[in-house]
Amino acid sequence: MLELAIGIILGCCALGAGIAMIAGIGPGIGEGNAVAKACEAIGRQPESKSAVTSTMIMGCAIAETTGLYALVIAILLIFVAPGIMVDVLVSAI
């Protein structure tokens, strides 16, 4: 019975990590838009390339944050959560 419970905990942690990483879609779309617009701007005004590039990198870094939150949650779910959950389960029994 205990093995089954531990198996369910491990499986659910892995599933949760996978579902959390769906958040990676958002930054992907956002950064793609940002880079596309930056390319358009450089094409229109090639002399402002350096300013546009540095602004774009800043914007990308900020847009990336939500995806990185999901990544941190996923890493916690895979590496940290199973140990804590199993400890709680064993102490409850």
Binding site: A61, E64, T65, L68, Y69, L71, V72, I75
Partner: peptide
């Protein structure tokens, strides 16, 4: 918090 997670997340994703 966001500054921490941004830097840490980028580096740790590379490691993983």
């Amino acid at each position: 918090v966001s500054m921490t997670f941004r830097h840490y997340g980028n580096i740790i994703s590379g490691v993983v």
